[in-house]
């Protein structure tokens, strides 16, 4: 038996902001010589799609800072108060917020979700898609990136039972 540490993650959300934690943790854990499995279930399944289309939804997300990624520092630091009435009714608002968040991340030297996911795949993170959720949402395996395995709760729990770290994201 090796003393390799193991980490088991459940990724259950598919928005841009929540796409980061599982891929950041998984890529870093592998860099720290750990063995990692991520179980993608419910909305997290969309993070396995060949073309990642994760967006961010400021609506009903009151703690999300709405800031501009460009301009002088004083302008960038302004917190724009966007009432739910606007964020939920203005067409394309989520696209705008998504673009702003991506720009801000880029300007701060943060990797894209695609980059982090690629690193996870290359470095041998085991990606498991939840078969049940796929059936419910009508996803097929060929919509996902290569190397994804399918399984259910028992698949995750079998790995998680031996893992040193288990997190639900």
């Amino acid at each position: 038996m090796s003393d390799t540490k193991k980490m088991a993650l459940i990724a259950s959300r598919g928005t841009l902001d929540w796409a980061y934690p599982p891929f950041i943790l998984a890529s870093t854990a592998v860099a720290m010589d750990m063995e990692v499995q991520i179980f993608f279930t419910f909305y997290g399944l969309t993070l396995l799609k060949k073309k990642l289309d994760a967006k961010v939804a400021p609506h009903s997300n009151p703690s999300m800072p709405m800031k501009m990624p460009f301009g002088p520092k004083s302008f960038k630091n302004i917190e724009w108060p966007i009432p739910n009435l606007i964020s939920s009714n203005l067409p394309g608002f989520n696209d705008v917020a998504t673009t702003l968040m991506k720009k801000t991340f880029k300007s701060k030297g943060v990797a894209t979700v695609e980059q982090l996911r690629d690193i996870c795949v290359e470095s041998g993170v085991k990606l498991v898609g939840c078969q049940m959720t796929m059936d419910v949402f009508g996803f097929t395996k060929d919509e996902f990136i290569d190397g994804v395995e399918l399984g259910g709760a028992a698949t995750f729990l079998e790995f998680a039972a031996e893992a040193d770290i288990q997190l639900f994201v």
Partner: peptide
């Protein structure tokens, strides 16, 4: 330089 978490670790590795 200019890179944020977790890139410095990943690149160092």
């Amino acid at each position: 330089r200019g890179l944020n978490c977790p890139l410095p670790i990943l690149k160092t590795k």
